[in-house]
């Protein structure tokens, strides 16, 4: 996983609430067996609409998605995170994320920043008026800065440390694998097993 300390880029204002994962990446695009190549499916159903924000040249190269409330609801597909990353997004800002989506993004190194709805509105208004506005998201100081403005956000220390170090969860857990083995030794014998196959 790539380390995330700070990122500077332009923003894409997505004025929609409840953008579910079927909108982020429709099911027909989920057939790939790799983690790459999902960028074409990102917001698949909306991309044909010339009015859609990503079809506006001014916002084409944005790397920070600023979305409405309840972003990422619905299915657990991590493909939604990959699609955003494959397209080039490094950060998503919203006033509320669906739990599984947020968890997935933190595993995959896509930073999800929660800001109050007023701040989201402020960013929307600013970047809609001048799309070239540059934003800096700093995980070290837990701030988003836009010109003179600075917004702070919360993120738990553990996740922040993992993202900043680019640490993979599996590696961290394998350091504690002895505790897992001990725990397994204490599991009661009635606990279910899938093998051997009974019928």
């Amino acid at each position: 996983m790539e380390k995330f300390v700070t990122h500077t880029g332009t923003a894409v204002p997505l004025r929609r609430s409840n953008v579910d994962t079927d909108q982020i990446i429709p099911a027909v695009y989920l057939k790939r067996v790799t983690k790459s190549g999902f960028e074409d499916g990102l917001f698949g159903a909306w991309r044909n609409d010339p009015e859609f924000i990503l079809n506006n040249d001014a916002f084409k190269n944005g790397t920070i998605l600023v979305a409405g409330v309840d972003f990422g609801t619905g299915s657990s597909r991590e493909h939604a995170v990959w699609a955003l990353q494959n397209y080039g997004f490094k950060v998503v800002i919203s006033s509320r994320f669906a739990d599984i989506f947020r968890g997935n993004s933190q595993k995959a190194g896509l930073l999800t920043v929660i800001l109050p709805q007023e701040s989201v509105e402020e960013i929307w208004n600013t970047v809609e008026a001048s799309p070239a506005t540059s934003l800096t998201v700093n995980l070290e100081s837990k701030t988003v800065t836009m010109g003179e403005k600075s917004y702070s956000f919360e993120i738990d220390d553990y996740t922040r440390w993992r993202l900043m170090e680019g640490l993979d969860d599996i590696g961290l857990t394998l350091k504690k694998i002895d505790a897992v083995t001990t725990f397994e030794g204490s599991r009661p014998s009635y606990k279910v097993k899938t093998l051997p196959v009974l019928s």
């Binding site: 657990s76 599984i100 968890g103 738990d156 599996i170 857990t173 394998l174 897992v180």
Partner: peptide, 20 residues
């Protein structure tokens, strides 16, 4: 509960998940 693909890999490898 539902999990993402990174977590699927985590469970396959360790039979555990780090969770709050």
């Amino acid at each position: 509960f539902g999990i993402g693909t990174s977590e699927v890999e985590h469970v396959l490898a360790t039979q555990t998940l780090p969770l709050k």
